[in-house]
Design a protein around this nucleic acid. Structure first.
Lengths: 209, 209
DNA sequence: CGCGTATGTATACCGGGTATGTGGGCGTCG
DNA sequence: CGACGCCCACATACCCGGTATACATACGCG
């Protein structure tokens, strides 16, 4: 839905054609989200199908101009007014990976977490460098400001991810410790076919299986 | 790719069939990511196509058992060893929205940001409540731990989002203020067809257009 | 028995993401 | 001058994740 409404927002400023939209879209989000040109046309097709935009025969047959319709304008302000839903977050591959790694024999949780931590930190440094560039460029055009906000979101998220990874590690260490002190916590339900939690492999710092 | 490898990780523990995988997948991620059953079968089909799993005729013809192959096992450990790529983040609808809203006449940035802030905070409270429940449930099975980690990721992200939103607002206020003090900053390039940055609408607190 | 329900599987459709194909305009260089 | 090649604008095909729906069998129950 981001592409759909992104294009609609651009068309709200006036009629545009395909590749023009691509350029303007990318100038808003810098280098983060290169927009494949194919997506522009398929999305434009869907927008037209849903009556949110209209083709506008601009004389020159080669470039198909599109203009936003009244319904499109309504849909757009709706989008701006309603918050983006965060109660049904999309599946995150990293969370899935850690969730699957917990209790899987042969997986060194610490190594997985540390490897990811290094990678995410490196990505964050790249974003920070881009941000420094963006702030030097006097950036006071809407495009520059938008690009800056996008970059900062990525930095905030990356930083949160690093902190979450640290939190995961310390939590797993703590769990391993409490399990070590009472080696046989009585299973509450014998009917539970879950594998033994001692499968959780968290090594002391510096070692690896 | 999260579903693909998630199912592969479950199959690494032994042969399973479709709906069994669904149940186990969801017990790892609690209520966050209900896995549609259709995705299980299509993904299983793709995994078989790629030689990562094999159908295992378990006598009973009705439930098709699948078992991981050697190549599947290799692919899985690869997945665990390589970090999830964060250098090409997927498009975030909220970032797109704010990027498009900047400098769009008729859009009250403050209202958009505050509305989202309320929504995200409310989602975060829900997650926190779920976390409290999860921690009361003695949770020491791998499933409980995994669910807890997933929940905490959502909380960390939501919190980062709220802080980012606050940051956006204060940055826009600051920009509006500097623009107010020097009302006509000379445009650096006359060839730039960008609309005037004064279109950025940020209202003083409490008002709205 | 026949009906409803639960279980397990399969399929159709949508949107986002990526790569590739195609045709016209235009410049360059032999 | 004209053939080649490049760039622009558009289009198509395919993959994966997400959602809903169809369908068939098993099972319980009056």
């Amino acid at each position: 839905m981001s592409i759909r409404f992104g294009l609609l927002a651009l068309l709200d400023r006036g009629p545009r054609y395909g590749s023009q939209l691509r350029v303007e879209f990318e100038s808003r989000t810098g280098t983060t989200w290169p927009l494949n040109i194919g997506q522009v046309y398929t999305t434009l097709g869907r927008l037209e199908r849903d009556g949110l935009i209209q083709p506008e025969g601009g004389g020159d047959a080669k470039q198909q101009l599109y203009a936003i319709t009244e319904e499109g304008r309504r849909s757009l302000t709706d989008w701006f007014n309603k918050p983006v839903d965060r109660t049904h977050p999309s599946r995150d591959e990293l969370a899935i990976k850690l969730a699957m790694a917990v209790g899987t024999p042969g997986v060194d949780m610490r190594a997985v977490i540390q490897g990811q931590r290094r990678h995410t930190l490196s990505a964050m440094r790249d974003y920070t460098r881009l941000k420094a560039d963006a702030m030097n460029a006097d950036g006071s055009t809407p495009d520059d400001i938008a690009w800056l906000l996008v970059l900062e979101q990525l930095i905030f998220y990356a930083e949160a991810e690093v902190r979450w990874l640290d939190h995961c590690e310390s939590r797993l260490v703590r769990l391993a410790a409490t399990r070590a002190t009472r080696p046989q916590p009585p299973p509450p339900h014998v009917t539970d076919p879950e594998p033994d939690p001692s499968h959780i492999t968290i090594q002391p710092k510096g070692t690896s299986r």
